[in-house]
């Protein structure tokens, strides 16, 4: 009886089993990590691309804005607006002029006016 009973029992090598489980788990983890990291790389690549596109768009918008500023502040544009009456040049009123006592200056840096009534058109 003892003999037949002994035949129905399979001995489980716990250490071996554990080794196989760890190995399998490690391989599975490695595989999953590989897949995950690869996907992450793709994902990061897409994000990088999206950011590059965004930067390029921002740069483009910046350039368009710069171009508009340059066009609107150009001399010809300002003169056109002056003619249209959109801008006006108003002489500075007397009460808005603050005069400082003129310092004694060297001849070189003395600023003097020029007038040409004859040349006035």
């Amino acid at each position: 009886m003892n003999r037949s009973r002994r035949k129905n029992w399979n001995t489980v090598n716990a250490a071996s089993l554990a080794r196989w489980i760890v190995l399998t788990g490690f391989l599975a983890l490695t595989g999953l990590s590989y897949v995950y990291l690869t996907l992450q790389l793709y994902h990061l690549g897409d994000r990088k691309k999206a950011l590059e596109t965004e930067v390029a768009n921002l740069r483009m918008q910046n350039e368009v804005a710069s171009a508009q500023i340059a066009a609107l502040t150009s001399r010809s544009a300002l003169q056109r607006r002056l003619k249209e009456g959109y801008l006006k040049m108003i002489p500075i009123a007397e009460h808005n002029i603050v005069r400082l006592t003129l310092p004694a200056r060297n001849q070189e840096d003395t600023v003097q006016p020029v007038s040409n009534q004859r040349g006035a058109r």
Binding site: P91, I92, I97, V98, R99, L102, V111, Q112, P113
Partner: peptide, 17 residues
């Protein structure tokens, strides 16, 4: 020519410039 220009006018022109 500068000597002939009064000081007040110098200041006024400088301020408006």
């Amino acid at each position: 020519i500068r000597k002939a220009i009064p000081v007040e006018r110098v200041a006024l022109t400088n301020a408006s410039r």
